[in-house]
Design a protein around this nucleic acid. Structure first.
Lengths: 196, 196
DNA sequence: TCGGGATGTATCGGCTCGATACATCGACGC
DNA sequence: GCGTCGATGTATCGAGCCGATACATCCCGA
């Protein structure tokens, strides 16, 4: 009860408000532009989320400068509080399944510039294993039933596999880039030696 | 109330049972293998759906052959009724947004072999316009804000765009194949002339 | 001046998922 | 024989989320 909502939307809102204070309508527009192809948040979840964050003191209403008020426009601008910034950092530090599942990975990735390098790497690797798991499952299932399937089903499977394989390659590149960047940052450290 | 559920799961269940009678557990396994990369149905929606279909007379319990009963195993096998087959045909005929949105397109495509050629074409084209709409929206939003974005956000947008563009190309090929097949089937008909 | 489209806040019904509970079965070691 | 572990199997519950909808204001052009 009381608008608990999942951590994904919470992170998305907190992360957006970290850049600049916003009101609901604009917040939703930015979020859906930011995530573009991956998700689309709706008011039905956004407003309860804002209410919950407000109640928990993670965001606060910001009254506009008195000079700007003319007709008493009812626009509620929210800004991040100190507690909200703390909570955001906490969410950005978490590198678990909650960060690399389908629904949440995009949001976490979108705020990677506020995330520590080590956490970034673990999320990218977690995402990759998740996808490889799925590839294995589908490939074995496909091997057992391929001859029984019609051409449409087969084509669907083929296209799905290819899409996920493509995403894995994308992740590989990102991981390589992250590794390169982090080894350049402190070249003396060599714990994993040359495992790649 | 009473387990109405969306039409997607209903179609998936009806379509699967059309091949062969199944019980819940096996049904879910097949569904998730069939859709593989796209969705994963859970028991929390499957069982209410089965109950609803049962109540509406679209499926029926099939008692196993008496000779096979040994310990009275509690396995509930469902089969499609005549009304269920009718309903399935009805669902397969619908070519609207409900067929080409993200959540439903995969399921509709998976049962294309039971779908009329004309409906197939309209669903594929609907899906394509849907994706192109989204591409336009993201591309214009990107053009307006590209210089303000950090490299991670930019990379996310780029990857998202590329994935969707890839899917559009895939749809283009499928549409071309469908057109070719349908024009070979009845070569005298030439309403759209040579628009391609 | 009138209407339509963008802006803006808000709620409700209903669908869906993840977690969980509970029970049986077959295979394995010992 | 016996415990137990993982797969099979049915089922529910809390909670989150979406689509549709309602309502109000603002701005702009015909």
């Amino acid at each position: 009860m009381a608008g608990g909502q999942g951590r994904v939307l919470e992170l998305a809102v907190l992360g957006s408000l970290h850049e600049t204070p916003l009101h609901g309508y604009e917040l939703r527009k930015r979020l859906n532009a930011l995530l573009g192809m991956f998700r689309a948040f709706s008011y039905g979840s956004l407003y309860p989320c804002l209410r919950s964050l407000l109640a928990r003191g993670l965001i606060a209403e910001e009254q506009p400068a008195p000079t700007a008020i003319v007709g008493g426009r009812s626009k509620i601008v929210y800004k991040l509080t100190a507690e909200g910034k703390e909570r955001l950092q906490e969410l950005l530090t978490q590198a678990g399944p909650a960060a690399w599942e389908d629904e949440s990975f995009g949001v976490h990735f979108a705020f990677f510039r506020h995330t520590e390098a080590e956490v970034r790497l673990r999320i990218l690797e977690g995402r990759r294993s998740r996808l490889e798991e799925r590839l294995d499952a589908v490939r074995t299932a496909l091997a057992r039933t391929a001859e029984r399937l019609d051409s449409y089903t087969l084509e669907l499977q083929r296209h799905g596999l290819e899409s996920v394989e493509r995403e894995v390659r994308w992740l590989n590149e990102l991981i390589a880039t992250e590794r390169r960047a982090s080894s350049e940052e402190r070249p003396e450290r060599d714990t994993t030696s040359t495992d790649e």
